[in-house]
Deep mutational scan, measured.
Amino acid sequence: LQAFIKTLTGKTFTVEMEPSDTIENLKAKIQDKEGIPPDQQRLIFAGKQLEDGRTLSDYNIQKESTLHLVL
């Protein structure tokens, strides 16, 4: 599935991932794409901060969901 990552500066980019991917995997993909170390990334979806060990499906993240990236 493709999801949108929106930063506080208003920049939006897309990442490809599977519902079974962990938040940790997602942070690694963001690092590959944007060069931001995972330990500096905080991802917010539906008002909740996402925990590394959980999966996208745990948070009911669907295709074309928008996640907010806070540094």
Rank of each mutant, 00 (worst) to 15 (best):
I36D: 02
E24N: 08
H68Q: 10
T7V: 07
D52H: 05
P37K: 06
Q2G: 05
N60Q: 08
Q40T: 08
Q31T: 09
G47V: 02
Q62Y: 11
D32Y: 10
T12D: 05
K6H: 14
G53F: 11
L67H: 01
F4G: 03
T12Q: 08
I30C: 01
E64Y: 14
I23W: 02
D21R: 02
D32G: 08
D21M: 11
D32H: 11
N60W: 06
I36A: 03
E34C: 13
K27R: 05
A3V: 15
Q49F: 13
E34Q: 10
L67K: 01
G10N: 04
F45R: 02
S57I: 08
S57W: 07
A28D: 06
P38R: 13
L50Q: 01
D39E: 12
P37I: 04
L56K: 00
E51G: 04
K6P: 02
R42M: 13
N25S: 12
K6E: 07
Q40H: 13
A46E: 15
E18K: 13
E24Y: 14
K63D: 15
T55W: 05
S20M: 10
E34F: 14
Q2A: 08
D58E: 11
Q62K: 12
L71Y: 11
L1N: 06
L71C: 07
E16S: 10
Q40R: 12
R54D: 07
K6F: 08
Q2M: 14
E16Q: 11
R42L: 13
Q2W: 12
L69G: 00
A28L: 15
H68L: 15
T22S: 08
K48W: 06
K29H: 05
E18T: 11
G53W: 14
P37T: 05
S20Q: 09
K33F: 10
D52Y: 05
N60H: 09
P19F: 12
A3W: 10
L67F: 07
D58Q: 06
T14Y: 11
G10Q: 03
P38T: 14
T12F: 09
Q49D: 12
Q31I: 02
F4V: 14
S20H: 13
G53K: 11
F45H: 08
A28R: 15
Q40E: 10
E51Q: 10
K63P: 15
Q49C: 11
Q31P: 00
E16K: 08
L8I: 13
D21I: 05
L1F: 15
D58P: 00
K63V: 09
S65Y: 09
L71F: 09
